[in-house]
């Protein structure tokens, strides 16, 4: 185990953590503001990858395909919000969980019908292939650096949106007390559509960027969704800061566990320990704090 390898894995962990942040922030915002548990969030991630693939087929240019995939995902999100999510706002958590679970089943099957069951590999954009030497002796793929950068920029923009703009003020107010916001004459249903579209776009962005790293296949969003939920539990539901800290923790912890555990222990149980590492982390956090690290809602 060289230092260069360790640093490289640390970079990978941060990058994976930032992807998880893009996902978790959507789950946490939708819950914090609309009080809806969205199990279909993983589908939006998956759809991002599929749309990128489809848009590449039509345009054969990444410069055109990425914005196109992004817009199509946002469109699906808006339609979804109006048809399915709106009636759910007044329903109980059980109904929300079931309906959004039903959506996940639907989307997983729909992409199978349209694009087939096989997983589809995506190429890294030609401009971004190759690698650079960030530390002596350690070559790091440019593509991973770029998506890390994009995720950081997206996170910063989101931060500015929430803290510096009028919409952001409404989002914060809405998560504190939505009745008062509605009573002040704010168009709350427009705000909800906006928040859902925003969360879906962040999920799709993660899906688009992860497309060339993972492969695009039916159900690709499911494992990401479950890790996202772990992040949200660790960070505390409803808290954007919690989502950030939790995502980085899970991303780094998971990546390092994959590298370090096989080095330390070599038995039959190794791969089990690797897969379970994140859940053990969650259990430990829950032992110390029942509501996660940054609980935003006191009921």
């Amino acid at each position: 185990m060289t230092l260069a390898l360790l640093i490289e894995q640390l970079f990978n962990g941060v990058q994976f953590g930032l992807m998880l942040f893009l996902m978790a922030v959507g789950v946490t915002l939708v819950f914090g503001i609309m009080r809806v548990i969205n199990l279909a969030h993983g589908s939006l991630f998956m759809i991002g990858g599929y749309f990128l693939m489809a848009a590449l087929d039509w345009t054969s240019s990444y410069v055109l395909a990425v914005p196109l995939a992004f817009l199509m995902s946002a469109l699906v999100a808006v339609v979804l919000e109006i048809i399915v999510l709106r009636p759910l706002y007044r329903r109980g958590p059980l109904e929300q969980v079931l309906a959004t679970f039903g959506l996940t089943l639907f989307f997983n099957e729909a992409v199978t019908v349209i694009w087939g069951r096989e997983s589809i590999p995506l190429q890294v954009p030609p401009l971004l292939t190759g690698s650079v030497e960030i530390i002596p002796g350690g070559a790091y793929p440019i593509y991973r650096l770029v998506i890390t950068g994009v995720a950081i920029v997206a996170g910063l923009l989101l931060y500015l949106l929430i803290t510096r703009t009028r919409v952001g003020a409404l989002i914060r107010a809405g998560s504190d007390n939505r009745e008062i916001v509605a009573a002040l004459g704010i168009n709350i249903s427009l705000l909800y559509t906006l928040v859902f579209a925003l969360s879906a776009m962040l999920a799709a962005l993660a899906g688009i960027m992860m497309g060339p790293l993972l492969s695009v296949e039916p159900g690709a969003g499911d494992p990401i969704l479950i890790l996202t939920l772990v992040v949200v539990v660790i960070g505390g539901i409803g808290s954007v800061r919690g989502a950030f800290v939790g995502a980085l923790m899970v991303g780094i912890f998971d990546t390092l566990a994959r590298v370090l555990i096989p080095l330390a222990i070599q038995t039959n149980a190794t791969s089990a320990l690797v897969g379970m590492a994140v859940y053990v982390l969650m259990a430990v956090v829950l032992l110390f704090s029942r509501t996660g690290l940054f609980a935003a809602h006191r009921g």
């Binding site: 819950f31 969980v97 479950i226 939920l229 949200v232 791969s271 897969g275 379970m276 829950l286 029942r290």
Partner: peptide, 28 residues
């Protein structure tokens, strides 16, 4: 462990533990 939490967290935590068992079974 999971009954220490409630509501939303309880759903997520039970889901996460089931997933943990899933990975455990996969690695047998």
């Amino acid at each position: 462990l999971s009954l220490r939490t409630r509501g939303f967290q309880f759903i997520m935590v039970t889901l996460a533990f089931a997933q943990m068992l899933y990975y455990f079974a996969q690695s047998l």
